[in-house]
Design a protein around this nucleic acid. Structure first.
Lengths: 194, 194, 194, 194
DNA sequence: TATGAATGAGGCTTCATTCAT
DNA sequence: AATGAATGAAGCCTCATTCAT
């Protein structure tokens, strides 16, 4: 690579740097989603990019690190949206509609969203903790009836993740939002007749 | 099996054999729960027993095989109980109480019950299919209001698994049953005040 | 096993002892012939008998030992016959006819005779050395023309083993004897027209 | 390939690659020769090189594969030479001289040539079949007297391999060629006096 | 910085052999 | 002596990571 090329090369290289990182993250998303963390190999990931195996380590120190980056990326993207929706609610209905809609829309946007994998990651657990705090706050504000916040939180998470799977499988985010909201507001009697 | 027979029929050898198999299964339960299928190694499993590495293969042909055995064992144990509870219900309340109680009691009895990982195993999927059939049948019988059975099924699964985690963490099966049932029958307004 | 049976059992056991040893040897013959020493496993051998794996070690200290026993058995059986045939020869023709016939008949009798495997075993090498001595003696006696005994010996061995394969594949011992003898006595011009 | 190109085309990297592959093949040749296929371990092979265990698998997918490569390499190298020698013969003497000389010279050149082990590989069997065809063709052309081609072929193979061992042990290729040729042309009476 | 071969720890599994019954 | 499960060394191979180019 001679001197004449170096300037152009430098800027192209910077572009490439960001692109490479993204390429690896994108590939990792797919691979982890399909095989899980332990089942996926770094080779699987780089094979899904045009890069060489060594290049992987220019961007991430280890397999563990991409995994973290990926989860952080996801959690950092959803958590504020969920938070926002819950905090701005002025009624129980708004609380549920807002939270579920934010979740399901996120799932619709991101191909490989809230995975079932590794629900014990720090970011995910932090998200759960936030949910519980928000529920407690909503109870305090009189938005939600007072009950065991931990259990209500768990129920929301269960229904949220399970219906998110339906969204991933093609169901409409709005429809899922309506269903989940109705269930939490009034139980089976309130569910949309279909 | 009376005393005279028990010695001959269950020689020390056979006893050990059964104990070893159980020891491996128990260890596998723990290890798979902690690390997932791909993350777990056969060494991890045998290290959690007093046995030697080769002994593992006297009982199971491969890591896959213990995993299957574990799955089948669990699913075969819960599925009939859940089924029975749902089929014998004569009201919506009985339907939910029966099903949730069966699940949570099973979790209480079995130390390491319904894992969150690998919900895609044949036995588990079959259990999900059964649930949906039973819901449809209950709707037909007029027990449950008519709504999207797939979604109601998903919601039940989500809440069931999530509260099962609470049970594993020490919550009472009866309390969880009451909470979940109340939620499905009447939504948040019906939840026990706590 | 009570006292009444013990006498009969004792003699039956002795019978069994010899039978077991033979059963193992017979099985080993087949297995080694098919898989070679390293490729064969003790399990392969005992699976070809009605015995249990541990029993193997009541008769042979190791896999190596059966292998030795087998080879010794074979070599001890052929070597005297070959020797006898060569020493009693009074002409070149008798020398070759006698030696080849002894070899090919032995192959016919024993299903799994002179294997191609492990030609470097002590017993086999001893047999080769004997052949060479006998050739030298025959040269000294004027039976065979004087030439390099080592090479003639090698040629005999090569032809002998190769035609023995034909015998194992179904060719007649007499026909092979005629062919080999003719070749050594007069070269291709002397071979039987066919 | 001129000097300017050679540096670029054969980078140190590529050179090493070729060298490593050769190192593995050479080691495998020795190890298989000594222990046979089943007896040899991949560890044995890499221990005979300065490489690491994993490196083996950068060059060959399995133990089977090196073995095949070795076989093919040898057979592909000798077979055409043997063929050529036999097909161009215009007399029985040329037939034998040509074929034996080609074989023994090959053995001289290649350190670890025609092994005695595993004569049943496809390539080796193909070589045997070729020999037989050539013999039949030579009979048809009147070069060789008509006799059982399979048996003559077997005898040639036996003598060829056995004397090849002598060559490997230090005997001269020409001397072995003379000996073998004389034997096939005229039997023991025609052998060189020594 | 990109490359891709080299590395070697570690995974799964087989098997000769031992040993309690 | 016969049995067959237990043992653990050792085999084959994969893979995260390093390193020379």
């Amino acid at each position: 690579m001679d001197a004449r090329q170096s300037y152009a090369a430098t800027s192209r290289r910077e572009l490439t740097k960001a692109q490479n990182r993204d390429a690896i993250l994108a590939a990792a998303r797919l691979v982890f989603a399909e095989l899980g963390f332990a089942g996926a190999t770094v080779r699987d990931i780089i094979r899904a990019t045009p890069l060489a195996s060594g290049t992987f380590y220019n961007y991430f120190k280890s397999k563990e690190e991409v995994y973290q980056a990926l989860r952080d990326e996801l959690a950092l993207a959803v958590r504020p949206r969920l938070r926002e929706a819950r905090l701005s609610a002025t009624s129980a209905e708004e609380f549920f509609v807002g939270a579920f809609r934010a979740l399901f829309q996120f799932v619709t946007e991101t191909e490989t969203a809230p995975e079932r994998f590794r629900m014990d990651s720090p970011q995910v657990l932090a998200g759960f903790a936030e949910l519980r705090q928000d529920i407690e706050a909503a109870m305090a504000r009189g938005l939600l009836p007072v009950t065991d916040a931990a259990l209500l939180s768990a129920a929301l998470i269960g229904v949220g993740f399970e219906l998110a799977e339906q969204v991933k499988a093609g169901a409409g985010a709005e429809e899922m939002t309506r269903f989940a909201t109705a269930l939490f507001l009034g139980g089976i009697g309130a569910l949309p007749k279909s």
